[in-house]
Amino acid sequence: MTESLSKRYPRVTALDRLSLDIGPGVTGLVGANGAGKSTLIKILLGLSPATEGQAAVLGLDVATSGGAIRERVGYMPEHDCLPPDVSATEFVVHMARMSGLPPTAARERTADTLRHVGLYEERYRPIGGYSTGMKQRVKLAQALVHDPQLVLLDEPTNGLDPVGRDDMLGLIRRVHTDFGISVLVTSHLLGELERTCDHVVVIDGGRLLRSSSTSDFTRSTTTLAVEVTDSDTHPDGTAALRKALSVAGVTLHAREEQGLPGAGHILLVEADGEDTYDIVRDTVAGLGLGLVRMEQRRHHIAEVFRDH
Protein backbone atom coordinates (compact mmCIF):
# COMPACT_ATOMS: atom_id res chain seq x y z
CA MET A 1 0.00 0.00 0.00
CA THR A 2 1.22 3.50 -0.78
CA GLU A 3 -0.33 6.85 0.05
CA SER A 4 0.68 10.05 -1.76
CA LEU A 5 4.12 8.53 -2.36
CA SER A 6 6.60 10.77 -4.14
CA LYS A 7 10.24 10.41 -5.09
CA ARG A 8 11.97 13.46 -6.49
CA TYR A 9 15.49 13.95 -7.76
CA PRO A 10 17.04 17.34 -8.64
CA ARG A 11 15.75 17.29 -12.22
CA VAL A 12 13.33 14.36 -12.29
CA THR A 13 10.16 13.35 -10.45
CA ALA A 14 10.19 9.55 -10.46
CA LEU A 15 6.96 9.12 -8.44
CA ASP A 16 4.30 11.79 -8.08
CA ARG A 17 1.79 11.40 -5.20
CA LEU A 18 1.20 7.73 -6.02
CA SER A 19 -1.54 6.01 -3.99
CA LEU A 20 -2.03 2.26 -4.40
CA ASP A 21 -3.59 -0.61 -2.50
CA ILE A 22 -2.40 -3.98 -3.84
CA GLY A 23 -3.93 -7.19 -2.54
CA PRO A 24 -2.82 -10.84 -2.68
CA GLY A 25 -2.42 -12.74 -5.94
CA VAL A 26 -0.39 -11.81 -9.02
CA THR A 27 -0.31 -8.07 -9.70
CA GLY A 28 1.23 -6.53 -12.80
CA LEU A 29 2.84 -3.11 -12.65
CA VAL A 30 3.03 -1.78 -16.19
CA GLY A 31 4.55 1.35 -17.60
CA ALA A 32 7.07 2.51 -20.18
CA ASN A 33 10.75 2.67 -19.33
CA GLY A 34 11.20 5.57 -16.93
CA ALA A 35 7.61 5.40 -15.65
CA GLY A 36 8.79 4.83 -12.06
CA LYS A 37 8.40 1.05 -11.73
CA SER A 38 11.90 0.25 -10.47
CA THR A 39 11.88 3.28 -8.18
CA LEU A 40 8.68 2.07 -6.57
CA ILE A 41 10.12 -1.40 -5.96
CA LYS A 42 13.26 0.03 -4.33
CA ILE A 43 11.11 2.13 -2.01
CA LEU A 44 8.92 -0.88 -1.14
CA LEU A 45 12.05 -2.86 -0.24
CA GLY A 46 13.27 -0.09 2.03
CA LEU A 47 16.34 0.45 -0.16
CA SER A 48 15.48 4.01 -1.19
CA PRO A 49 13.70 6.60 0.96
CA ALA A 50 10.63 8.37 -0.40
CA THR A 51 10.66 12.14 -0.65
CA GLU A 52 7.18 12.30 0.83
CA GLY A 53 4.18 10.10 1.50
CA GLN A 54 3.91 6.67 3.09
CA ALA A 55 4.24 3.04 2.02
CA ALA A 56 3.71 -0.28 3.77
CA VAL A 57 4.48 -3.85 2.68
CA LEU A 58 2.78 -6.76 4.47
CA GLY A 59 1.64 -4.26 7.07
CA LEU A 60 5.19 -3.02 7.76
CA ASP A 61 6.25 0.61 7.28
CA VAL A 62 9.00 0.82 4.64
CA ALA A 63 10.56 3.81 6.39
CA THR A 64 11.18 1.98 9.68
CA SER A 65 10.98 -1.77 8.92
CA GLY A 66 13.09 -2.29 5.80
CA GLY A 67 15.00 -5.22 7.31
CA ALA A 68 11.84 -7.01 8.43
CA ILE A 69 10.29 -6.48 5.00
CA ARG A 70 13.31 -7.95 3.22
CA GLU A 71 13.11 -11.06 5.43
CA ARG A 72 9.58 -11.73 4.17
CA VAL A 73 9.95 -10.57 0.57
CA GLY A 74 11.89 -11.99 -2.39
CA TYR A 75 13.37 -9.67 -5.00
CA MET A 76 14.38 -10.41 -8.58
CA PRO A 77 16.29 -7.40 -9.97
CA GLU A 78 16.02 -6.32 -13.57
CA HIS A 79 19.71 -6.30 -14.43
CA ASP A 80 22.12 -9.21 -14.54
CA CYS A 81 23.91 -9.33 -11.20
CA LEU A 82 25.04 -12.96 -11.04
CA PRO A 83 28.63 -14.09 -10.31
CA PRO A 84 29.81 -15.99 -13.41
CA ASP A 85 32.29 -18.31 -11.71
CA VAL A 86 29.96 -20.04 -9.22
CA SER A 87 27.23 -22.61 -9.81
CA ALA A 88 23.53 -21.96 -9.43
CA THR A 89 23.52 -24.22 -6.36
CA GLU A 90 26.33 -22.30 -4.67
CA PHE A 91 24.73 -18.95 -5.38
CA VAL A 92 21.19 -19.85 -4.32
CA VAL A 93 22.44 -21.61 -1.16
CA HIS A 94 24.40 -18.45 -0.32
CA MET A 95 21.30 -16.29 -0.81
CA ALA A 96 19.26 -18.68 1.34
CA ARG A 97 21.86 -18.42 4.13
CA MET A 98 21.81 -14.62 3.78
CA SER A 99 18.04 -14.80 4.34
CA GLY A 100 18.56 -16.61 7.62
CA LEU A 101 18.11 -20.29 6.71
CA PRO A 102 20.42 -22.78 8.51
CA PRO A 103 22.87 -24.74 6.28
CA THR A 104 20.87 -27.97 5.90
CA ALA A 105 17.59 -26.16 5.24
CA ALA A 106 19.33 -23.84 2.78
CA ARG A 107 20.64 -26.78 0.72
CA GLU A 108 17.28 -28.57 0.77
CA ARG A 109 15.35 -25.46 -0.20
CA THR A 110 17.86 -24.69 -2.96
CA ALA A 111 17.44 -28.13 -4.54
CA ASP A 112 13.65 -27.85 -4.40
CA THR A 113 13.62 -24.32 -5.81
CA LEU A 114 16.02 -25.07 -8.66
CA ARG A 115 13.87 -28.06 -9.56
CA HIS A 116 10.80 -25.82 -9.60
CA VAL A 117 12.39 -23.31 -11.98
CA GLY A 118 13.73 -26.03 -14.29
CA LEU A 119 17.43 -25.83 -13.46
CA TYR A 120 17.90 -28.98 -11.40
CA GLU A 121 19.92 -30.83 -14.06
CA GLU A 122 22.15 -27.80 -14.64
CA ARG A 123 22.53 -26.78 -11.02
CA TYR A 124 26.28 -27.46 -10.73
CA ARG A 125 27.35 -25.63 -13.89
CA PRO A 126 29.00 -22.18 -13.52
CA ILE A 127 26.44 -19.44 -14.11
CA GLY A 128 28.74 -17.74 -16.62
CA GLY A 129 27.94 -20.49 -19.11
CA TYR A 130 24.18 -20.11 -18.75
CA SER A 131 21.87 -18.69 -21.39
CA THR A 132 19.88 -15.53 -20.67
CA GLY A 133 16.81 -17.60 -19.88
CA MET A 134 18.71 -19.78 -17.41
CA LYS A 135 20.16 -16.72 -15.69
CA GLN A 136 16.67 -15.29 -15.30
CA ARG A 137 15.62 -18.57 -13.67
CA VAL A 138 18.53 -18.36 -11.23
CA LYS A 139 17.40 -14.87 -10.27
CA LEU A 140 13.86 -16.16 -9.76
CA ALA A 141 15.14 -19.08 -7.68
CA GLN A 142 17.10 -16.87 -5.29
CA ALA A 143 14.00 -14.72 -4.82
CA LEU A 144 11.96 -17.78 -3.84
CA VAL A 145 14.43 -19.88 -1.87
CA HIS A 146 13.58 -18.51 1.60
CA ASP A 147 9.83 -19.07 1.09
CA PRO A 148 8.75 -15.40 1.15
CA GLN A 149 5.20 -14.14 1.47
CA LEU A 150 5.68 -11.80 -1.49
CA VAL A 151 8.10 -11.60 -4.44
CA LEU A 152 8.90 -8.47 -6.40
CA LEU A 153 9.97 -9.28 -9.95
CA ASP A 154 11.45 -6.42 -11.96
CA GLU A 155 11.12 -7.03 -15.73
CA PRO A 156 11.65 -10.82 -15.42
CA THR A 157 11.20 -11.45 -19.17
CA ASN A 158 13.84 -8.98 -20.32
CA GLY A 159 16.08 -10.40 -23.03
CA LEU A 160 14.04 -13.58 -23.53
CA ASP A 161 12.76 -14.92 -26.83
CA PRO A 162 9.01 -15.62 -27.17
CA VAL A 163 9.31 -19.24 -25.96
CA GLY A 164 11.48 -18.24 -23.00
CA ARG A 165 9.07 -15.44 -22.17
CA ASP A 166 6.10 -17.80 -22.12
CA ASP A 167 8.01 -20.25 -19.92
CA MET A 168 8.91 -17.50 -17.46
CA LEU A 169 5.33 -16.22 -17.33
CA GLY A 170 4.15 -19.75 -16.60
CA LEU A 171 6.65 -20.03 -13.75
CA ILE A 172 5.51 -16.71 -12.32
CA ARG A 173 1.89 -17.81 -12.38
CA ARG A 174 2.78 -21.05 -10.58
CA VAL A 175 4.63 -19.15 -7.86
CA HIS A 176 1.18 -18.10 -6.68
CA THR A 177 -0.95 -21.10 -7.65
CA ASP A 178 1.49 -23.75 -6.35
CA PHE A 179 2.99 -21.99 -3.33
CA GLY A 180 0.52 -19.27 -2.41
CA ILE A 181 3.18 -16.56 -2.72
CA SER A 182 1.89 -13.19 -3.87
CA VAL A 183 3.68 -11.58 -6.80
CA LEU A 184 4.26 -8.02 -7.96
CA VAL A 185 5.74 -8.16 -11.46
CA THR A 186 6.78 -5.19 -13.57
CA SER A 187 6.72 -5.10 -17.35
CA HIS A 188 6.51 -2.66 -20.23
CA LEU A 189 4.69 -5.31 -22.33
CA LEU A 190 0.94 -5.17 -21.82
CA GLY A 191 0.19 -8.57 -23.30
CA GLU A 192 2.31 -10.37 -20.71
CA LEU A 193 0.23 -9.05 -17.86
CA GLU A 194 -3.02 -9.93 -19.56
CA ARG A 195 -2.15 -13.63 -19.51
CA THR A 196 -0.44 -13.76 -16.14
CA CYS A 197 -1.91 -11.32 -13.64
CA ASP A 198 -5.06 -11.06 -11.55
CA HIS A 199 -4.70 -7.30 -11.16
CA VAL A 200 -3.03 -4.61 -13.27
CA VAL A 201 -1.62 -1.28 -12.13
CA VAL A 202 -0.60 1.23 -14.80
CA ILE A 203 1.69 4.16 -14.06
CA ASP A 204 3.11 6.81 -16.32
CA GLY A 205 5.51 9.56 -15.35
CA GLY A 206 5.27 8.40 -11.74
CA ARG A 207 1.51 8.88 -11.64
CA LEU A 208 -1.25 6.30 -11.39
CA LEU A 209 -3.26 5.92 -14.58
CA ARG A 210 -5.39 2.96 -13.62
CA SER A 211 -5.63 0.12 -11.11
CA SER A 212 -8.17 -2.66 -11.59
CA SER A 213 -8.59 -6.40 -12.07
CA THR A 214 -7.37 -7.87 -15.33
CA SER A 215 -10.91 -9.01 -16.10
CA ASP A 216 -12.07 -5.38 -15.94
CA PHE A 217 -9.41 -4.43 -18.49
CA THR A 218 -10.32 -7.29 -20.80
CA ARG A 219 -14.04 -7.49 -20.18
CA SER A 220 -16.23 -9.14 -22.76
CA THR A 221 -18.04 -6.94 -25.24
CA THR A 222 -21.13 -7.39 -27.38
CA THR A 223 -18.91 -7.94 -30.41
CA LEU A 224 -18.73 -11.36 -32.04
CA ALA A 225 -15.59 -12.47 -33.85
CA VAL A 226 -16.58 -14.66 -36.80
CA GLU A 227 -14.03 -16.53 -38.90
CA VAL A 228 -14.91 -18.75 -41.88
CA THR A 229 -13.14 -20.76 -44.55
CA ASP A 230 -13.71 -20.32 -48.28
CA SER A 231 -15.68 -22.74 -50.48
CA ASP A 232 -15.68 -23.66 -54.18
CA THR A 233 -18.74 -21.48 -54.80
CA HIS A 234 -17.39 -18.64 -52.64
CA PRO A 235 -13.59 -18.35 -53.03
CA ASP A 236 -13.67 -15.27 -50.80
CA GLY A 237 -15.85 -16.57 -47.99
CA THR A 238 -15.34 -13.54 -45.77
CA ALA A 239 -16.61 -11.13 -48.43
CA ALA A 240 -19.59 -13.37 -49.21
CA LEU A 241 -20.49 -13.61 -45.54
CA ARG A 242 -20.17 -9.86 -45.03
CA LYS A 243 -22.56 -9.20 -47.90
CA ALA A 244 -25.07 -11.83 -46.76
CA LEU A 245 -25.07 -10.62 -43.17
CA SER A 246 -25.59 -7.03 -44.28
CA VAL A 247 -28.62 -8.14 -46.32
CA ALA A 248 -29.90 -9.98 -43.23
CA GLY A 249 -29.75 -6.73 -41.25
CA VAL A 250 -26.77 -7.63 -39.06
CA THR A 251 -24.50 -4.72 -38.06
CA LEU A 252 -20.83 -5.26 -38.91
CA HIS A 253 -17.79 -3.27 -37.87
CA ALA A 254 -15.86 -1.66 -40.69
CA ARG A 255 -12.61 -3.08 -39.30
CA GLU A 256 -11.53 -6.67 -39.91
CA GLU A 257 -8.74 -8.67 -38.29
CA GLN A 258 -6.34 -11.20 -39.73
CA GLY A 259 -7.49 -14.77 -39.16
CA LEU A 260 -5.64 -18.06 -39.27
CA PRO A 261 -3.53 -18.83 -42.37
CA GLY A 262 -5.86 -20.02 -45.11
CA ALA A 263 -8.97 -18.88 -43.25
CA GLY A 264 -9.24 -15.30 -44.52
CA HIS A 265 -10.15 -12.52 -42.13
CA ILE A 266 -12.21 -12.22 -38.97
CA LEU A 267 -15.46 -10.29 -39.21
CA LEU A 268 -16.50 -8.27 -36.17
CA VAL A 269 -20.27 -8.49 -35.77
CA GLU A 270 -22.42 -6.48 -33.39
CA ALA A 271 -24.43 -8.92 -31.25
CA ASP A 272 -27.91 -7.51 -30.57
CA GLY A 273 -29.02 -10.63 -28.71
CA GLU A 274 -29.11 -14.41 -28.99
CA ASP A 275 -30.78 -14.11 -32.41
CA THR A 276 -27.52 -12.78 -33.87
CA TYR A 277 -25.79 -16.09 -33.18
CA ASP A 278 -28.54 -17.97 -35.01
CA ILE A 279 -28.46 -15.61 -37.98
CA VAL A 280 -24.69 -15.89 -38.34
CA ARG A 281 -24.73 -19.67 -38.02
CA ASP A 282 -27.54 -20.11 -40.54
CA THR A 283 -25.96 -17.66 -42.99
CA VAL A 284 -22.61 -19.46 -42.86
CA ALA A 285 -24.33 -22.81 -43.44
CA GLY A 286 -26.43 -21.40 -46.27
CA LEU A 287 -23.33 -20.19 -48.10
CA GLY A 288 -21.63 -23.57 -47.66
CA LEU A 289 -18.70 -22.05 -45.77
CA GLY A 290 -16.76 -23.65 -42.95
CA LEU A 291 -17.14 -21.95 -39.56
CA VAL A 292 -13.72 -21.73 -37.90
CA ARG A 293 -14.99 -19.89 -34.83
CA MET A 294 -17.70 -17.61 -33.53
CA GLU A 295 -17.02 -16.21 -30.10
CA GLN A 296 -17.72 -13.22 -27.96
CA ARG A 297 -14.71 -11.00 -28.35
CA ARG A 298 -12.64 -9.66 -25.48
CA HIS A 299 -10.76 -6.40 -25.35
CA HIS A 300 -7.02 -6.70 -25.05
CA ILE A 301 -5.27 -4.43 -22.58
CA ALA A 302 -3.37 -2.66 -25.37
CA GLU A 303 -6.64 -1.82 -27.09
CA VAL A 304 -8.11 -0.39 -23.90
CA PHE A 305 -5.29 2.14 -23.71
CA ARG A 306 -5.32 2.88 -27.42
CA ASP A 307 -9.05 3.56 -27.31
CA HIS A 308 -8.77 5.80 -24.27
Score class of each variant (00 low, 15 high):
E71S: 14
I301A: 10
E303K: 03
L193G: 10
A63K: 12
G100L: 05
A254N: 06
H79K: 13
D272N: 11
C197Y: 07
R11F: 10
L184I: 15
G100W: 04
G46H: 05
L245E: 00
A96S: 03
R219K: 08
G159L: 02
R125I: 07
L287V: 00
L47G: 02
V200G: 13
G23M: 06
L287W: 00
A240D: 01
V183R: 07
V92N: 11
R123G: 09
L40W: 05
D154R: 03
T186E: 08
L40F: 07
L224A: 11
A56H: 14
G290S: 12
G118P: 09
R109H: 11
T229I: 00
R195V: 09
G264H: 12
G191C: 05
G133Y: 10
I266K: 04
E155H: 00
V247Y: 03
V138I: 08
L114D: 04
V62Y: 00
K42R: 15
A96H: 01
V12Y: 01
A63S: 15
R242S: 15
H199I: 02
D236P: 02
L160T: 07
A111P: 06
V62T: 03
G129K: 08
M76C: 09
T64H: 08
E121S: 12
L15M: 09
S48E: 13
E227C: 13
L58I: 06
I43L: 08
F179C: 02
E71P: 03
V57T: 07
H308D: 15
D16H: 13
I22P: 02
H300M: 14
P126I: 05
L171E: 08
I41S: 11
A56Q: 14
F305T: 02
V228W: 05
D275R: 13
T218R: 00
G164N: 03
T221E: 09
T251Q: 12
P261L: 10
F91K: 07
G36Y: 02
L190Y: 04
Y120T: 11
Q149S: 14
